[in-house]
Design a protein around this nucleic acid. Structure first.
Length: 561
RNA sequence: CGGGGCGUAGCGCAGCCUGGCUAGCGCACCUGCCUUGGGAGCAGGGGGUCGGAGGUUCGAAUCCUCUCGCCCCGACCA
């Protein structure tokens, strides 16, 4: 491909709206353009990258027996109504009506439609298992699209769905997807982790996410380097640092106007970890008191999994429920549901006295209060691994893939059933598995760049090799350029020639920006010695080779990378 | 949806507070000359409803009101 014939609008300056590295570089290097918030155009270079990623996806999906199909993006509402998601999902779903006033929506994911298809077509256990996948556009009316191509309202997703006769079959397909995903992300040149995750509204008990470490990531994971425990903070367990049991006697202390843990802790010169924070929430079942240690933070999602949707109690509700103002609440003597973080099972603490301006020192679990014990705190760096007690660390990550065991969540409402060996009707056992190709691309950029631009992993670069003729008006240069281009192309290398009549500086800068892994520089000086240069974009290593050997050397050089 | 910021040429910005001459600068773009190993130089040139609407004023990029868009933080994220 010739640069002069390809639309590669590079920019010297970064558009001011871009913040994330991948966003800046993909704009500057001419890979994408923004149409509106969360809507991106993939330009020729960007589209080539996506296609390379998709090719890897297809190969690895086919390798585990998945079959590619293509489903509509426009869905009738009835199917989504049957599973209930039409009502559960709110503004996130794009909804519309057709000309006959029929409710429709744009697909944010395809569990419903895939299950519908299975319900129509699969009758017998003999037809199972099936794995169907597609690489298809998804539409989600995101509250806040951000970071360029990382979070958009319309994006392409590789989504696959497995249908099995039983849990064992699902387990097998779940595992083979995990295996395929490892291969895919490895082939794409990404650093990544597989972590335990929250199944969320997808339902089912088990889910994992594939996470590419990057400061631009929106998610955070917890890692234990010793035992290998990795989990999304949304579900991560941890053991907060141990504290001594100071065995104070139960006594009231005067703490005028000191309400927050920080204030009382400073006032009494006692570490926050010796305090119990008492928080009142209003759930569907009524008020619930939640206790966590002073140095912990409540994980609202963990709490929501236990008591359902809730909100913070208003000042008046605290007063009417507990008879004390917020800031001096203690867990003693109340008749309501009390949940406490498990760490509070042991020790002696300080807490509100249920009386304005007073705290209680010396409160002990089981003696002065009872509670349901749960993991309610946010795991963070400095905590210990709940499995092996080693110090854990946290990392920012980009979610690039996920796998869910769905079970029969969708097959039951949509009546996707089959007859088993004994002629018994049973719901299919399902799994769903997603990968975002544009997130792979963005994560690859986030993990591979320098001050000059992108450094693509060679498996997903838009081209393998870029040829840079220094002076396009030199006949010898042109001649060598054509010979190399032909030679490399014949050996199935994807080659971009910068045949523009531009100054060398511009070509070098653009080449570095665009980030093709290998550059071949043809200059008049080296030609006099019958040589050309082969350069590694990442390391800047340059190898001079003779023109005769240039093709084979360049290929070898590419393969070494 | 809550908080903050920004909309002036393709990109990056100045001008706005304190209203006033033809709306300016760098890069990019076009023409010519020159130049060719890391975003050259000289000369000439094109491109703007100052996001939009309404208002105040003799006069609005500038002041006021409304509105639209984009970005960032948070909430949300199937």
């Amino acid at each position: 491909m010739r640069f002069s014939k390809m639309f590669i609008p590079t920019m010297r300056e970064v558009p001011s709206e871009a913040e994330a590295i991948s966003h800046k570089l993909m704009l500057r290097a001419g890979y994408v353009r923004q149409l509106a918030a969360g809507l991106y155009i993939f330009l020729p270079l960007g589209w080539r990258v996506l296609n390379r990623i998709n090719k890897i996806l297809k190969e690895e999906m086919e390798a585990i027996g998945a079959q590619e199909i293509s489903m509509p993006i426009l869905h009738p509402a009835e199917i989504w109504q049957k599973t209930g998601r039409w009502y559960e999902i709110k503004d996130e779903m794009f909804r519309l009506k057709d000309r006959t006033d029929r409710d429709m929506c744009l697909g944010m994911t395809h569990e419903e439609i895939m299950t519908w298809l299975a319900s129509k077509e699969i009758r017998s256990y003999r037809q199972l298992p099936q794995i169907w996948y597609q690489i298809q556009t998804k539409l989600r009316d995101e509250a806040r699209p951000k970071s360029g191509v990382l979070r958009t309202r319309e994006f392409i997703m590789k989504d696959s769905y497995s249908f099995d006769t039983d849990e064992d079959g699902l387990e097998k397909n779940y595992k083979s997807h995990a295996y395929a995903y490892h291969k895919i992300f490895k082939r794409c040149g990404l650093k990544f982790y597989q972590v335990e995750s929250d199944p969320g509204m997808m339902g089912g008990a088990t889910a994992h996410e594939f996470m590419a470490p990057s400061p631009a990531g929106e998610d955070e994971i917890i890692l234990c380097d010793k035992c290998g425990y990795t989990a999304n903070v949304e579900v991560a367990h941890s053991v907060s640092p141990a504290i001594k049991d100071l065995k104070w006697n139960y006594e009231e202390v005067y703490t005028p106007q000191k309400k927050t843990v920080k204030e009382v802790s400073e006032f009494l010169s006692i570490e926050p970890a010796y305090f119990i924070k008492s928080l009142l929430f209003m759930a569907a079942e009524g008020p619930v008191l939640v206790l966590i240690r002073g140095d912990q933070e409540l994980h609202e999602k963990k709490l929501a999994r236990i008591i359902g949707q809730f909100r913070t109690a208003l000042r008046e509700e605290v007063m009417s429920t507990l008879g004390v103002e917020a800031g001096f609440i203690g867990p003693m003597g109340h008749k309501l549901r009390i949940l406490a973080d498990s760490i509070l099972r042991e020790g002696t603490y300080i807490t509100g006295a249920n009386k304005a301006d007073y705290h209680i020192k010396g409160i002990k679990p089981h003696v002065h209060f009872e509670a349901e014990w749960h993991d309610l705190h946010i795991a963070k760096e400095g905590d210990h691994c709940y499995r092996c007690n080693t110090l854990i660390r946290a990392e920012k990550v980009i979610e690039i893939g996920n796998i869910f065991k769905l079970g029969i969540k969708y097959s039951v409402p949509l009546n996707a059933v089959f007859l088993d060996r004994n002629g018994q009707e049973k719901p299919m056992v399902m799994g769903s598995y997603g990968i975002g190709p544009s997130r792979i691309a963005a994560a690859a950029v986030e993990q591979n760049y320098d001050k000059d631009g992108i450094i693509w992993p060679k498996s997903i670069a838009p081209f393998d090799i870029e040829i840079i003729p220094i002076n396009i008006n030199d006949n010898k240069t042109l001649e060598v350029m054509e010979v190399l281009y032909e030679g490399l192309t014949k050996n199935s290398m994807d080659v971009l020639i910068d045949d523009r009549d531009e100054r060398p500086g511009i070509k070098f800068k653009d080449a570095d920006l665009i980030g093709i892994p290998v550059h071949i520089v043809i200059g008049e000086k080296n030609l006099k010695d019958n040589q050309i240069e082969i350069k590694n974009r990442r390391t800047k290593e340059i190898r001079k080779v003779s023109i005769e050997n240039a093709v084979s050397e360049a290929i070898a050089f590419f393969q070494e990378i």
